[in-house]
Amino acid sequence: MKIAVCVSHVPDTAAKINIGSDSKNIDQNGVTFVVNPYDEYAIEEALKTKEKFGGETVAISLGGDANKETLRKALAMGIDNAVLLKDSGFRDSLSVAKALAEEIKTQGAELVFFGKQSVDYDSSIVGQLTAELLGYNCISVVISFSLDGNKITCEREIEGGKEIVETALPALITAQKGLNEPRYASLKGIMAAKKKEIIEKQPVAAQNYIEIISMKKTESKQAGKIVGTDSSAVPELVRLLREEAKVI
């Protein structure tokens, strides 16, 4: 079985963000980029599935040359092959999905893992869009996955609980924290990854439907009132919540 995993390359969530001179993007100077955290769960699940059932794994990323770092990390963790769909311009989610779907089709992958969300634009939809374009079954925000023959059983997180969901291959799964514990790349893995080729391809063109008009920093809320330094401040806090904020 061919298993694909789609990975994005994103600013570290701890990074400070500044707006670029075009007022539409962030200023990338001094920002550390990492593998999208949810995609590590996706990589791990792809590796585990291959270990259990055999097959071949491929990591796919759409973006500029910098994305090779993330693909390298996937290879170091144990993914067999890597494809960079090279495009450094802005693409909205649907346009990314169109390119990924095309490559997944070319690869002939029957099982595909995504992260539930990229921590840059935080849209959490590229997986579902791609699945729909491929006509694959899809379960999103998955915290447990099992495959038995053709049949897939997952738990997915929802408000106030979880759903047990069943489907069949071909399928696309989006990973949520809790699905597994991503492994660390071994030294051997890191060395081997350095020697592997990352295949570069031109992604299919697709129009953007979303146009970013402007980006600005979130205004930090004015730091509020320190009501006091011990429990003697509690009555005043309760009064403020009742009379000023009117929330209790």
Partner: peptide, 18 residues
């Protein structure tokens, strides 16, 4: 909000269906 709420974007949708 984007980037974990650190920034906000204004956007419009240009397709016929939105």
């Amino acid at each position: 909000p984007v980037y974990a709420g650190k920034a906000l974007i204004d956007l419009k949708i240009n397709s016929l269906k939105k």
